[in-house]
């Protein structure tokens, strides 16, 4: 069996960016719970910043299971609202809807060119296809609190 978890590359998760209040408390809780579900042997699929998110999550969780595991760091568009980092791009919602649906089905389909235009971090998500059929996802978080689409999902196959 293989266990796979997807978390977003939200830098606000990192302790070096902690404020007196946590602006991503719900997301953090979901990420930590999902990371704790992974087994001992974990492969991280992430870009350079995503690796730091993964290390943070894995350092703070215990891993009791034997299953081969993957922690994937990626997220949808950062152009979902006027206040979003990439401002509003009307195409972002349809893009995220399609990407989210394919993730839920366990066969992520990534339009890399459009993703780049919509400030989506999908490099590691695209690598998920190499793991074969993942099956249906369990979704722990699906929201865009700052105009950026975040998912926390897990698959077991």
């Amino acid at each position: 069996m293989t266990r796979v978890v997807l978390v977003p590359g939200t830098l606000a998760l990192l302790p070096e960016y902690a404020g007196l209040e946590d602006p991503v408390a719900d997301l953090r809780a979901a990420c930590l719970e999902a990371a704790a579900w992974l087994g001992r042997s974990i492969t991280v699929l992430a870009d350079e910043q995503g690796v730091r998110i993964a290390e943070y999550l894995l350092d703070r969780t215990d891993h009791m299971h034997e299953e081969e595991s993957y922690l994937v760091v990626g997220n949808g568009s950062a152009c979902r609202t006027e206040k979003a980092p990439g401002h509003l791009d009307e195409r972002s919602h349809a893009f995220d809807e399609a990407l989210g649906a394919s993730l839920r089905g366990g066969r992520p389909e990534v339009d890399a060119d459009l993703a780049r235009q919509l400030w989506a971090s999908v490099g590691a998500i695209a690598q998920l296809r190499d793991l074969g059929e993942l099956g249906p996802a369990q979704v722990a978080y699906d929201d865009d609190p700052f105009g950026v689409q975040y998912w926390v999902m897990r698959w077991e196959s």
Partner: peptide, 12 residues
């Protein structure tokens, strides 16, 4: 000496 109250700008 004191963290910001709530920091999210650029860190989303």
């Amino acid at each position: 000496r004191r963290p910001p109250c709530r920091a999210i700008r650029g860190l989303q």
